[in-house]
């Protein structure tokens, strides 16, 4: 299979590979996929006091398109608000990377990872507010 130049670029020079402290209250972590399916993505966001995503990191077990999809997602997340983050759709990722039909599921996984990270962050914030009230 031939890869698009953008997939190759993200694959060869992945942006934002790494790990944020998943215990930290301002970090949301999303872990999606399954080893048996051949792809697992972990995507993390760190949200600043201004409500904007100040850092995003990923690690991915998967094919080149899965790695590129998560790398691109972290790039797009930085500087966005949490609400804006949720507007990133798999179709946007697939279009940007020119993914072929058999690789669309990689972009779907990246969208799931974003949603999962945001949900984890929101849950932490809700727990913190509840603790403050209690």
């Amino acid at each position: 299979m031939a890869y698009s130049e953008k997939v190759l670029d993200h694959y060869e020079n992945p942006r934002n590979v790494g790990t944020l402290d998943k215990e930290s209250e301002d970090v949301g972590t999303g872990l999606v996929g399954a080893p048996a399916c051949g792809d697992v993505m972990r995507l993390q966001i760190k949200v600043g006091d201004d409500g904007l995503i100040e850092d995003a990191k990923f690690k991915t077990f998967g094919c080149g398109s899965a790695i590129a999809s998560s790398s691109l997602a972290t790039e797009w997340l930085k500087g966005k608000s949490v609400d804006e983050a949720e507007t990133i759709k798999n179709s946007m990722i697939a279009e940007e990377l020119n993914l072929p039909p058999v690789k669309i599921h990689c972009s779907v996984l990246a969208e799931d990872a974003i949603k999962s990270a945001v949900a984890d962050y929101r849950a932490k914030q809700a727990a913190r507010r509840a603790a403050a009230k209690g």
């Binding site: 690690k59 991915t60 077990f61 790695i67």
Partner: peptide, 8 residues
Amino acid sequence: REMSPLYE
């Protein structure tokens, strides 16, 4: 493996 969440 540096990029693999599973390895970590």
